[in-house]
Write a protein that binds this DNA or RNA. Structure first.
Lengths: 234, 234
DNA sequence: AAACAAAATACAGTATACAGTTAGCCGGCG
DNA sequence: CGCCGGCTAACTGTATACTGTATTTTGTTT
């Protein structure tokens, strides 16, 4: 309990266990790409930052490992360096799951969710115009959370969430390209229209195309930036 | 280290961490339905059984929770009681993933894997004839492991493994019905033929049908046995 | 006898201490 | 100057002790 000094936004939560709070905090950081791929996460170090003992931090890290967000080494934890094959694999799964999920969401779309989707889309467009990548990523995540929230099959939604998160870090890099961003904004617009129409078939088709485009954009960007075919450390 | 008395098959392993060994052991027990749905898994109790402290056991249990095999309560851990909606959800995901995975495996089938598939199929048929449910389940798992082993996309294979495992416990119950077993043996035979032909399209179609049949058989069996629509404790 | 409240209990969560392992470093040797 | 072998330090893994809380049980009251 030495000093709550540099503690983030997390000194408040009460009802959840400490381990869960740390998990949520770390997950947020990972999702926003706040953890560099070469950075080592050391439990005792993080524990000092949170003002806790190692145990809850360790529990959180272990859980993140089990979910594929981190890999544990004998010397700290780190984010996995995905090779192009890893990315291909993840996109293969997304291609199978997301169209069906989108269809399901379109059939169960609510006015509130549509509102959220519209807001996220507008925000994304604004950020695109202003070349504000960070904001665009946040808006992107909000859009995804909004439609995935309408998927009745929670296991499906959570599985998608996880795999999308796994490529999030690498996606961050691809959004540097202006044309990639244009493709994303375009796809989001189409999806929004399909959700608004509550048309499952259309949503499914749009989502399939969206995933394909995202994958193509990634490999185009990766090809441009460099063929670093990092060996799979999944 | 009080007594290695009732320790299972697990006093030997060395290179892996204790937590991992316990995890593997518990996972095996869960997969084989050795843990009753009402049974409580208590860390200190298990720890005594393994001759270890709570920590590695706790780590294993927490990991199983993260992977959906268990749910943690304030009073021990237990296997989740899946309601019919949960089962429906899991089958929806399997229906999306397994055909593609089967196609992939068919395209990459090896002679050794085919041999393993053949053996498992024969074993399954024999067990079916002898009404030996336990052996049939083991053969079933061997068959699955054999073809999933040929799926290049490991994330896909592991995701399938996990969801199949989750319905395994409930599946065990459905295999009591002789006609369900007949359907399974039949589907396995068809799949084996498709794999032997190394025909991705055929494997995909067979797998799709197999999953559909399995789901239908489950709900038929559940309808017969009783409409216990257990509330989702996923 | 049923219902409620208070106490006991049994468990997970958390903290601290210790052990084991490996990566990184430094010095000796070719 | 570069390579190899032992040394050191920095981690994770494991053990033990303590705490908090929810469930169960027991006792009391109507």
């Amino acid at each position: 309990m030495i000093l709550c000094s540099a503690a983030p936004v997390e000194s408040i939560g009460r009802r959840d266990s400490l381990a869960e709070q740390v998990y949520a905090d770390l997950l947020g950081k990972l999702r926003h790409g706040r953890v560099a791929p070469d950075q080592r996460l050391v439990d005792v170090e993080l524990a000092r930052g949170y003002g806790l003992s190692r145990m809850p931090v360790r529990d959180a890290l272990l859980r993140l490992v089990a979910e594929g967000y981190l890999i544990g080494t004998t010397r700290g934890f780190k984010v996995p360096a995905l090779g192009s094959q890893d990315v291909r694999d993840i996109f293969e799964i997304r291609r199978l799951l997301e169209p069906q999920a989108a269809a399901s969401a379109a059939g169960a779309m609510s006015d509130e969710a549509l509102e959220a989707l519209g807001t996220a889309l507008a925000e994304c467009r604004r950020a695109h115009g202003a070349d504000d990548i960070d904001t665009m990523i946040v808006a992107n995540m909000a859009f995804r959370a909004a439609w995935l929230g309408r998927v009745a099959n929670r296991r499906l939604a959570e599985t998608i969430f996880r795999f999308v998160d796994h490529v999030q870090a690498v996606r961050l890099a691809t959004l540097r390209h202006r044309d990639t961003r244009a493709i994303v904004v375009d796809g989001l617009g189409r999806l929004h229209a399909a959700f608004q129409a509550r048309d499952p078939e259309r949503a499914s088709a749009c989502m399939g195309r969206f995933v394909d485009d995202a994958q193509a954009a990634f490999f185009r960007a990766a090809g441009v930036e460099g063929p670093q075919d990092g060996p799979a450390q999944s």
